[in-house]
């Protein structure tokens, strides 16, 4: 059952703030990898761009349109990617996915999720989880492509 308290926890100020003023929006030059992901049932769209060197994500940018949850999540995600190794980025994706599926996270691990912690309330809204994970889906595909192509610059 969803009550107004849960609704307020879904739409926290931090989420609305990232939605209204997204971080790291735009093009990237040079760009090591660009991945677009669509949510075909609802039209959410994310284009993620990474610049990778020596196995580290130097910069992350995105474009997209969609609901507050999908766009805030990808904005928050890009804030955590700068300076992360490919392994760290993958671990971040796993950790956030676990959080969305309602798996308890230790406090220390939660802290590593940064602003993404504000999205914890989404796990109570099963139909919205795919919105929150759209940017991370793009990230996983991007990491795969970087590793396959050897573009990590390692």
């Amino acid at each position: 059952m969803v009550d107004d308290v849960q609704l307020s926890s879904l739409y926290q100020q931090l989420i609305l703030e990232h939605y209204r003023s997204p971080r790291n929006r735009g093009e990237l030059d040079p760009c090591s990898v660009e991945v677009e992901r669509l949510n075909p049932t609802c039209g959410d769209q994310v284009v993620l761009r990474l610049q990778v060197g020596d196995g580290v994500i130097r910069e992350a940018r995105f474009d997209g349109e969609g609901c507050s949850i999908s766009q805030a999540a990808v904005s928050m995600m890009t804030c955590l990617l700068e300076g992360a190794t490919l392994e760290e980025a993958r671990a971040l994706a796993d950790r956030f996915t676990a959080l969305m599926h309602g798996k308890e996270e230790r406090r220390q691990e939660l802290r590593q999720l940064g602003d993404l912690r504000a999205l914890q309330g989404v796990s109570r809204f099963p139909v919205r989880i795919k919105c929150a994970l759209l940017g991370f889906e793009a990230l996983r595909v991007a990491l795969d492509q970087v590793e396959e192509s050897g573009a990590s610059g390692a």
């Binding site: 969803v2 609704l7 049932t41 609802c42 039209g43 969609g66 609901c67 949850i69 919205r128 919105c131």
Partner: peptide, 21 residues
């Protein structure tokens, strides 16, 4: 507000609408 967000908020009031294309 995006259509999904409208639908989620209406759902919390017991109102079923569709959001999407």
């Amino acid at each position: 507000a995006h259509a999904h967000d409208i639908a989620t908020i209406l759902d919390s009031k017991g109102i079923a609408v569709r959001a999407g294309h």
